[in-house]
Write a protein that binds this DNA or RNA. Structure first.
Ligand SMILES: [Mn+2]
Ligand SMILES: [Mn+2]
Ligand SMILES: [Zn+2]
Ligand SMILES: [Zn+2]
Lengths: 139, 139
DNA sequence: TTCATTATTGCAACTTTTCGCAATAGCAAA
DNA sequence: TTTGCTATTGCGAAAAGTTGCAATAATGAA
């Protein structure tokens, strides 16, 4: 497990909510993949560890943890994926032909975000974007 | 109806597929909203016009039309929405507090797209993005 | 530690979306 | 026009995800 339990308890409480066994187990399950994982994969792993946890709870928890920004989520190849949120945002370039996924640092969005702030008085929350297209090999 | 039937027949055939009554009716249904519409809304309208069309066909058709870029789709407030594709891409700023939706012209992405092309040799296909965040009133 | 409040869970039913497969129909070629 | 190929559809069933509600348990206050 690469995350520190104590931080998550605090961040959940700070957000005005309660830490529960179920939420801890879902966090651990997501973390254990060390990659983007689908709801189905996470649900399966949760049930391996704690079969009594209801599926509705797992779905609700994934949405909840994403809303309070403890998880990142995104749509890749038509599938919703989740991962533990990184300290800073990060993004991906996804080839729709070969499926290759590359990382794109947050820095690339700095100018766009600044422009949206100043010209549109809108505060964008861009923490995990998946950009589809064609990689060098597939163009 | 604001679209020209003949164009769609041609574009579907050019993409190596067949135009069918079902696809025409789904296109008409999506068009009739003149706004972002959910799958449920589109399915309902299709059934008002042609009750015999199967729901699986409508879902399959929405995916298909999106894949060949005749429709735009996106996730707004957790819901997948569809609309007739505009000649040029367009994007949205969506306030997560009040739900207000503003338009964002494609021009804003020009620099980002250029950077991704030159620095990452990746050809991004950004035709309809929904950026969530906070509008001026809600910050 | 005990209690009171109420957020969260489990449950079961429900809605939404997907799937495999046989029947149908688009369309290119004869 | 007719024919043949096969992409597309309808169907029924399954899978995936959501919901309302009563029971449970996390938290702060006593
Ligand atoms: Mn990621
Ligand atoms: Mn739009
Ligand atoms: Zn590729
Ligand atoms: Zn707002």
């Amino acid at each position: 497990m690469s995350h520190h339990t104590i931080d998550y308890i605090q961040r959940i409480r700070d957000s005005g909510h309660r830490m529960t066994h179920q939420r801890q187990i879902v966090l651990d399950a997501v973390c254990s993949f060390n990659r983007h994982a689908t709801a189905a994969e996470i649900l399966k792993r949760v049930h391996e560890i704690a079969p009594a946890i209801n599926q509705a709870t797992v779905y609700r928890t994934l949405n909840f943890l994403t809303e309070i920004h403890l998880l990142f989520s995104g749509t890749i190849d038509g599938q919703t994926i989740y991962e533990i949120a990184t300290p800073t945002p990060h993004h991906h370039l996804i080839c729709r032909k070969c499926g290759h996924i590359a990382a794109l640092p947050d820095q690339c969005f700095a100018d766009l975000i600044q422009q949206i702030k100043t010209e549109y008085q809108f505060l964008p929350e861009i923490d995990h974007w998946a950009i589809t297209g064609l990689c060098a090999d597939c163009q």
